[in-house]
Write a protein that binds this DNA or RNA. Structure first.
Lengths: 236, 236
DNA sequence: TTGAGTAATATGTCTAGACATATTGAGCAA
DNA sequence: TTGCTCAATATGTCTAGACATATTACTCAA
C-alpha cells in the first residue's frame, strides 16, 4: 500500500534542522550573515512564516542573533546555556527513589541580619519568620535549609502547619513569585550545618542561595546547604 | 496630531500577559484546564494563531502543559527553571572589569583514570591530552582548570598554540558540540588546587564539571575549580 | 564635512482558512 | 467486564498576503 512519493510538506523542523546543520558544519560560520527569510523560504519551497518559526527557535536557543533590517547572524559566542531545574525538594528526593521527610528544627520571629534586610529592602527592625529545616532522604540528611519569610508579603503562611508541610512546598503551592535571584556557591560547613548534616565542621558544602519577589515585595530568602558529594546536574 | 483611538490590534504579548496574570492571580489555578484557543481567540478578538503563539511561549517557559485534544492546563509544579549561562572564562573575567590572563601549567599526553575513560566511553589505554591551566583576573587566581581532550575527535587541537589561546577559547571557537553534561558541586581543595589558587588545602571550592560530545564522540572533560567566595548567579 | 531627512529592507506580527495529528471518550462487540 | 473501533476535538502547523517597526544606507542641504 505504498503511497506514491508526494511532495512532502516542508515543516519548520526541517528548516530548523537544516539551519542547525549548516551552523554546526561551518557552512554558516559564527558572525556570518545568513540568507534572508524570503530567500530561505524560496530555497525550501515554503512560506516565510515557516522559516521564521525555525529561525526564531534557533534564536531562542542562542544559536542565532536576529535584528530587524540588519538580518540574521550566527551567534559569535555560541551561547552555552544550561537549564537548571529547581525542583521542590520532595521531588528531588523522591525521583532518587528515596522516601522524603523533613524536620522543623527552629521556628521563630526574628530580626534579620542587616545584610539580608538590606538585600530584601526591609525597614530596619522589621521582623521575619525564621525557619531552620532539615530535609531527609530515607532518614539521612539531604539538605539543611535556612529560610526567612516576609509575613507582610505572605500573610497566609502564619496559618500553615509548617511541621507537616515544609515551607518550601507550602510556598510553591500557594505563592507565585514574579522574580527570583539565585546564586550557587561553595561554603565551609558552619557548626550548625555540621550538626544538622552530620558532617565535620568546615566540610565543603554546596549552597543554593535564593531570594524571591512578588513585584518589588520580597517573599523569602533561602539558603540550602547540601552535604559533600551532592551534585546538581543538567544537560546542555 | 492625536490619532482617533483606533481599535488597537491584539498582539500575542497581550494574550501572554493576560494569561500570565490569570495564572499568577489564581484565576487559573494549577492543574486547571484553561479555555481552548478558539475560545480565547474569541475573547480577545484575534486569530487563533495569535493565542497559540502566546500559549506556546508560556508552555516553553514551563507555566503551561499543552497536549493535543487534552487541552491546556496550568502546570502543577510551576517549573522553576534557571538559565545558567556558561561563559567563556575570558568573558566571565572581563565583564567583571578585570583583565584576563591564563597560564598553562601542564600539557602532556596521558592515560586518563579509569572512571573518566569509562564515562567518556574510551578504550582502555587510549591517551588524551591532559592540561592544567590557571585563569587569572587582574593577576589573581580566578579558576583552576583541569582538562582532558580527545584528540581523535578534535585533531586540530594538536596544532593550536595553547600557551597563547586557552583550550577553553580554542574549543569554543572551533568546535560545536552537540551535547554536554554539566555538574555543579562543592569539593575540598586538593593540594594541587590549593597551590594553584593560593588557598588552604581543604577549602570549600565551587566546582564546575563538564563533559561535551559531538554525536557519540567525547570531545573534552573539564573540571573548573573556583576559590571560596565565587558565586554563580542567575535570575529566574 | 556634518547632520538631517528619507527611502529601502529584513524581521516581527496578524489574519483567515485549511489540513494534520494526537488523544479522548463513546459505542459496540466479544 | 474487557477490548476494539471510530468519531469528536484541541492543539500543531502551513499558507499567502498584509501591515508594522526597527535600522541601515543613502541623499541632499547647511
Amino acid at each position: 500500500m505504498a503511497e506514491a512519493s508526494v511532495q512532502a510538506p516542508t515543516t519548520w523542523q526541517t528548516v530548523h534542522a537544516a539551519a542547525l546543520d549548516r551552523i554546526r558544519s561551518g557552512a554558516w560560520p559564527p558572525g556570518e550573515l545568513i540568507p534572508t527569510e524570503v530567500d530561505l523560504a524560496q530555497e525550501f519551497s515554503c512560506a516565510r512564516m515557516t522559516v521564521s518559526r525555525a529561525l526564531r527557535q534557533l534564536a531562542d536557543d542562542g544559536m542565532l542573533d536576529r535584528r530587524r533590517k540588519a538580518g540574521t547572524r550566527v551567534a559569535t559566542t555560541p551561547v552555552r546555556r544550561a537549564m537548571l531545574t529547581i525542583p521542590v525538594i520532595r521531588q528531588e528526593v523522591e525521583t532518587k527513589g528515596a522516601s522524603y521527610r523533613h524536620s522543623l528544627i527552629t521556628q521563630e520571629h526574628r530580626i534579620p541580619p542587616n545584610a539580608l534586610a538590606a538585600r530584601m529592602g526591609l525597614a530596619p527592625g522589621d521582623r521575619l519568620i525564621y525557619l531552620e529545616t532539615l530535609h531527609l532522604a530515607d532518614g539521612r540528611p539531604h539538605a539543611a535549609e535556612t529560610r526567612w519569610i516576609n509575613t507582610q508579603a505572605v500573610p497566609g503562611i502564619l496559618k500553615a502547619p509548617l511541621d507537616q508541610i515544609s515551607a518550601n512546598e507550602w510556598l510553591v503551592q500557594n505563592v507565585f513569585y514574579t522574580r527570583g535571584d539565585l546564586a550557587l556557591l561553595a561554603e565551609p560547613a558552619t557548626k550548625t550545618d555540621a550538626a544538622h548534616l552530620d558532617v565535620r565542621e568546615g566540610s565543603a558544602l554546596f549552597i543554593v542561595d535564593r531570594l524571591t519577589w512578588i513585584g518589588d515585595q520580597p517573599i523569602t530568602a533561602v539558603r540550602l546547604a547540601y552535604p559533600p558529594g551532592h551534585r546538581m546536574t543538567t544537560t546542555l
